[in-house]
Amino acid sequence: MSDRNFVLEVEDLGVSFDGFKAVDGFNFYLNRNSVHVIIGPNGAGKTTVLDLICGKTRATSGSIRFKDRELRGTREYKIVRLGVGRKFQNPSIYENLTVLENLELSHPTGRGVFGCLFFRRTPEIMGKCLEIAEQIGLADKLDTEGGILSHGQKQWLEIGMLLMQNPEVIMLDEPVAGMSVRERQETSQLIRKISQNRSVIVIEHDMEFVKEIADRVTVMHMGKVISEGSMETVQNDPKVIEVYIGH
């Protein structure tokens, strides 16, 4: 199943922690320019899948191909530079830097030691920061320290930091956790918008939110895929219903 259209192909992926198989025989194909949501009960292994793709955890079996390049065994920062960005489950931003500095530090120019030492804030970089700040709705908070943003704003800022790198694949781990209804709506618009020219993997529990954003849904349970397809197909799958009712 090697269609040119898939930007990411994950096959037979597995990892075990001291014999406990957190992810097992996991297959996953990501279309270009689409939003693919992974759902599943707590402890299903969703976060672990993202950890495996971005190199944070080493897989024990399987392959992860990104545009025909094997990511397994590649160092984390190289995976990022290839074009795979990742947001963590708990918002992870630089608390004592301002919004602008957070974004600027995520700009891909000058990520080597000497690149950093001789980095200058050019008008292009500044323009890019402003553009992204506009997109994530923090344009009026450029000089605010990251630490005093609301929880939702922190989530957005982290998404903005990913966008600065202009990755082809963005992975968001529970991006609307702890957000108000309005913030959720804004986030779903944001995700729809950023998926126009890149693919987005989202992990989420909130079904309403999933319905709104998902092009495709994968349901995980105990480290395995139990169902995949459109939201409608998945919702009517007896296996899924069983897992969620049993839950």
Binding site: R75, Y77, F88, S92, Y94
Partner: peptide
């Protein structure tokens, strides 16, 4: 925030 730096593409 070691991980955030790493996953922003820094070595």
């Amino acid at each position: 925030r070691e991980d955030r730096v790493r996953f922003s593409g820094y070595d």
